[in-house]
Simulated assay, not measured.
Amino acid sequence: MNALPALSLSLSLSLLVLFGGQVLAAECPTLLQHELPKLRSKETIDLCQRFAGKPLVIVNTASHCGFTPQFKGLEALYKRYQDQGLEVLGVPSDDFKQEAATSEETATVCYVNYGVTFAMTQPQHVTGDKATPLYKELIAQSGQSPRWNFYKYVVDRQGKVIAHFSSLTKPDDPDLLKAVEQALDSKP
């Protein structure tokens, strides 16, 4: 018998025990291979570290938009499914000329006015040539660029976009909830 396969199996089992029985992903999905600056912080959000293996709703936001009250529904969605692993990432953007002039004002709208507890980034470009690499990948996978603020992408545990929804789709819309539940049921 060749000793190498037995050693490899032993090492793999040891690593599983060492990491609490969790299987670690060999590679982070392309979608998540980015870091974005965190809102009201000097820190960054390492998307792989924070979201790999988790279902995710990514939404571009704006502080002064008719859809801004959707923050309340997004927070409710996050709270409803958080214990099942759902993450929400808000990405403020002024691409549609409705974001606050400063990050502090953006943070006040999110955290004070709407009580947001899910992850929020500093304002980013989400459309066109200047779009952040995260959004370029969302657009490539879905075939759809955000047409306005509060455009929503649902991403499964493998980092694949499984659905996208217009700004008109509220966070409690049955079709959006169905996509979120599908993402929750996906295998890492």
Results as ranks from 00 to 15, higher is better:
1 M>C: 11
1 M>E: 15
5 P>T: 15
5 P>V: 10
8 S>C: 12
9 L>V: 09
10 S>P: 08
12 S>T: 08
14 S>G: 10
17 V>Q: 12
17 V>F: 14
17 V>A: 12
20 G>C: 07
21 G>S: 13
22 Q>Y: 04
24 L>W: 10
26 A>C: 12
27 E>H: 14
31 L>A: 07
32 L>C: 09
35 E>V: 13
38 K>Y: 04
41 S>N: 11
42 K>Q: 07
46 D>A: 03
47 L>R: 00
49 Q>Y: 00
49 Q>H: 11
49 Q>V: 09
51 F>C: 04
52 A>L: 11
56 L>M: 07
57 V>K: 00
61 T>E: 04
61 T>M: 09
61 T>I: 12
63 S>Q: 15
63 S>C: 02
64 H>E: 15
64 H>K: 12
65 C>G: 09
66 G>K: 11
67 F>Y: 03
68 T>F: 04
68 T>G: 01
72 K>A: 13
72 K>R: 10
73 G>K: 01
76 A>V: 11
77 L>Y: 04
78 Y>T: 06
79 K>N: 05
80 R>Q: 13
80 R>G: 05
82 Q>S: 11
84 Q>L: 10
86 L>D: 06
86 L>A: 04
89 L>Q: 01
91 V>T: 03
93 S>P: 01
93 S>W: 06
94 D>K: 06
96 F>A: 10
97 K>E: 12
97 K>T: 05
97 K>P: 03
98 Q>Y: 02
98 Q>K: 00
98 Q>C: 01
101 A>S: 13
103 S>F: 05
103 S>V: 05
103 S>M: 05
104 E>M: 14
105 E>L: 11
105 E>P: 00
112 V>A: 10
112 V>D: 09
113 N>F: 07
114 Y>P: 10
115 G>V: 03
115 G>C: 12
116 V>D: 01
117 T>H: 03
117 T>M: 10
120 M>L: 15
123 P>S: 07
124 Q>N: 07
125 H>D: 09
126 V>K: 00
127 T>R: 14
129 D>F: 07
131 A>L: 12
132 T>D: 13
133 P>Y: 01
134 L>S: 00
134 L>Q: 02
135 Y>D: 00
138 L>S: 09
141 Q>G: 02
142 S>K: 04
143 G>I: 14
144 Q>A: 12
145 S>E: 05
148 W>Q: 03
148 W>V: 09
150 F>E: 01
151 Y>N: 08
158 Q>K: 15
159 G>T: 12
159 G>F: 06
160 K>M: 06
161 V>Q: 00
161 V>K: 00
163 A>R: 02
165 F>E: 02
166 S>I: 09
166 S>W: 07
167 S>T: 15
168 L>G: 13
169 T>K: 01
170 K>W: 09
170 K>C: 08
171 P>L: 13
172 D>S: 03
176 L>N: 06
177 L>G: 05
178 K>M: 07
178 K>S: 10
179 A>H: 02
179 A>T: 04
182 Q>I: 08
182 Q>D: 03
182 Q>T: 13
183 A>Y: 01
183 A>I: 05
186 S>R: 05
186 S>Y: 06
188 P>T: 15
188 P>I: 11
